[in-house]
Design a protein around this nucleic acid. Structure first.
Lengths: 127, 127
DNA sequence: TGATTAGGTTGACTTTGTCAACCATGTTCA
DNA sequence: TGAACATGGTTGACAAAGTCAACCTAATCA
């Protein structure tokens, strides 16, 4: 799904979008949390965050609970970008499902979720 | 789906698996056909095919219809590898769907296919 | 306090994929 | 026929994405 969105119009590479989403929607978001959520190397997270910082889409603030880390927040520009991304996603989603019923789509999502849960079961045992 | 399979045990990177599948299942398979099917650069196809050749999984034969191209076929080792891959895929598939009914799975596949068709509609207009 | 762990940054590297140039063959058409 | 152009495939240079290991600083724990 996601890739078809970038194909279209997006000014940001796919991973950047995902990380921006995390910054926007995850409570008390830090680099570490993103790395865990996305199961990716923290080095890469750092680099993408730097890109987003340079692009003025996010900002760092001191983390009162841990001086080593920073809390991440979207800037107004970041919120606007997020808005735009959501519009595009919604757009392609409706294109995908234009001739399906609401019930079919919900059924699909429920089963997809179910399947991913089944797979998450046996990942690296450190959870 | 596919990525979880490689995670597990597979001795081949993901793209190699997909290309081996094409060689095994596409009639009169050539590099060009694979590149079209997978919508990938033909340079990369060449390189992956070379890997598979070196690994002894496929073989090239002259194409009587066009001396520039070669027909691709799996070797016995390639067939065996394909067999193994299918087993692994089947395995994770049943893990994903262990607590779903046959009907649910079929419904899911049908809708997924439908959605991809909806998206294929507006790709680069050269079809 | 000292030893160890954890968050983050950086550099070197691998993997995967793309772009452009090229060669040899095929195709078209005056 | 033969010149011009198109096509399948190969190669080299490169960009993008991700991984590994070393490191610094702050936190934790004995």
């Amino acid at each position: 799904m996601v890739q078809t969105i970038r194909d279209a119009n997006l000014p940001l590479p796919g991973t950047h979008v995902r990380i921006l989403k995390a910054v926007c929607y995850v409570q008390a978001c830090t680099a570490r949390r993103i790395a865990q959520r996305m199961r990716r190397d923290k080095a890469q997270i750092t680099r993408v965050l730097n890109d987003l910082l340079e692009a003025g889409l996010i900002s760092k603030a001191c983390n009162p609970a841990d001086k080593r880390s920073h809390l991440l927040h979207p800037t107004p520009a970041g919120e606007a970008m997020m808005q735009r991304i959501q519009e595009l996603e919604q757009q392609t989603l409706t294109r995908m499902t234009c001739d399906l019923t609401q019930a079919e789509v919900e059924h699909f999502i429920r089963i997809a979720w179910h399947m991913t849960q089944n797979l998450e079961g046996d990942l690296p045992p450190d959870s």
